[in-house]
Each structure stands twice: as structure tokens, then as C-alpha cells.
């Protein structure tokens, strides 16, 4: 039924196109010329981008490494170690304890060859606005040395005080309590805000964000303590 209907339409369409094919300069010529020009433009644009990419690559790599080191410097003072963190890196295939289902790098700090700290990324999945990405430094004795929020979608002005740049309390930002209060030997129950019977402060009105961060940091600390031997021993690639 539908096929029969379609046929006359096709014929009509063909009839309409036919006269155009006879017209100069010819559809094919125009198409070929357009295609060639488009290809030419694509070639020139790609060449331009390739050149700029090559010219900026060293600066971009350097900027990314500076960025990483700046973040690490905030949670792990340089005086504590003497190796090149970024070179002494292993890759964890995946770590459910850290909320990671993709491979993550683990940076290892050493002084005179002795293990000092591990720096790695963890994800707090229970954030109010979605997952919160953290960078955590855990000392060789399983102490949490420092934590920073790398990316989050917490409500501006409410839950975003977990990021020290947004914290109104500039002198003693919330996130600093990990490094200043020596979180050694804490049990699972201690890794909670005070409201929930834990050891950590929070701000009234926004408990979900710090709760999520605390859970993730607690899990990461336990993970680092349990896997310590293995994480320090593996040879970097």
C-alpha cells in the first residue's frame, strides 16, 4: 500500500530535478568545487590548530603540574619530603573505598627513601549537589595530614564552605581541622560531625556537605592504613 503511494512521488521528484541537471554550470561541478574548498578550509584550520597546540603544549603541561603541586603544597608541606612526588606515582586500577571506579594516581612522598605520605584523590558520593572530589594526604602512620576539595557542586553560600576559598572563616577554614587536629587513631564512629556523635565541627544549616566529606575522608584514611605496605612498595611505571 505504502509502496504504491510512494512510487508516483518518486517519479514526480525525479521530473522536478531533471531540468536542473541540464543547466550550466552543472550541479556536479558546483558540488566538487564546494567540497574542494571546504576541504581546503578544513586543512588550513586544522594546520593552524595543530601549530598552536604544539606551541602551547609545554606551557599547558607545566601549568597543569604547577596546579597539582600548588594543591599538594596546601595539604603536605614541602619540608616533610625530598622526592619528586609527581614522578613517584603509581596508578590504582580502581578503588571502591575511595569512591573511584576509574584508575587514579597515587603520589608518594618520601624523605631519604622512607615513606612519608600518600596523596590521592577520593570522591564523596553523598554530596548535596552530587559527588565531591577531594584530594587527601595521609601520613605513613595513617594520620590524615590535609584535605582539599577539588571540585564540587554544593550550594553557593551554604554548603560550599567545605572549599576553603569559599569559606567565610578565612583564619580557620573548616577543612583545616583535618590538619590541625591530628586525626590519628580515629574509629569509624569518630569520622562524623559532632551532631551525629563524631569529632568534627560543622556549620548549622548545612550538614550534608561536611557529612559527605567526613565519610569520604574516613574511608580514605582506613583504606590508606590497610593498604599501606602495598601502596608504598609498588614500583612506579
Amino acid at each position: 500500500m505504502s509502496e504504491e503511494q510512494a512510487r508516483p512521488e518518486e517519479q514526480e521528484a525525479h521530473l522536478e530535478i531533471a531540468p536542473e541537471e541540464d543547466q550550466p554550470p552543472g550541479l556536479i561541478d558546483t558540488s566538487v568545487r564546494s567540497a574542494a574548498l571546504l576541504f581546503g578550509f578544513a586543512l588550513v584550520c586544522t594546520a593552524l590548530m595543530a601549530w598552536i597546540y604544539g606551541a602551547t603544549l609545554p606551557s599547558i603541561t607545566a601549568a597543569a603540574e604547577r596546579e597539582k603541586m600548588k594543591l599538594i603544597d596546601e595539604i603536605l608541606p614541602r619540608a616533610l619530603y625530598d622526592n619528586n612526588l609527581l614522578a613517584d606515582t603509581i596508578e590504582l586500577p580502581s578503588a571502591p573505598d575511595l569512591g573511584q571506579d576509574e584508575a587514579i594516581p597515587v603520589y608518594r612522598a618520601r624523605k631519604g627513601g622512607q615513606p612519608v605520605a600518600l596523596v590521592f584523590e577520593a570522591i564523596a558520593p553523598e554530596g548535596y549537589g552530587g559527588p565531591i572530589r577531594l584530594v587527601i594526604a595521609v601520613g605513613a602512620d595513617a594520620t590524615v595530614l590535609g584535605v582539599r576539595v577539588v571540585a564540587h557542586k554544593e550550594t553557593p553560600g551554604l554548603g560550599d564552605y567545605i572549599d576553603p576559598r569559599k569559606d567565610k572563616n578565612k583564619k580557620d577554614p573548616w577543612i583545616e581541622q583535618f590538619s590541625t587536629r591530628g586525626a590519628t587513631g580515629l574509629s569509624e564512629a569518630d569520622w562524623k560531625v559532632k551532631k551525629d556523635g563524631g569529632r568534627f565541627d560543622y556549620m548549622t544549616g548545612a550538614t550534608i556537605s561536611p557529612r559527605a566529606v567526613l565519610q569520604a575522608v574516613g574511608r580514605a584514611a582506613r583504606f590508606a592504613a590497610a593498604e599501606r605496605e602495598r601502596l608504598y612498595a609498588v614500583q612506579p611505571k
Binding site: A42, C45, T46, L48, M49, I52, Y53, L57, I60
Partner: peptide
Amino acid sequence: LIIAALVTCLDLAMNAW
């Protein structure tokens, strides 16, 4: 094509500098 190429160049340049 032209706009995209120029934006990409700007994107790379900003990332670098």
C-alpha cells in the same frame, strides 16, 4: 569552521598562559 578554529586556538592559549 573558522570560528571553531579560532576559539580552539584561544582556548589553548588561555590554558597555557
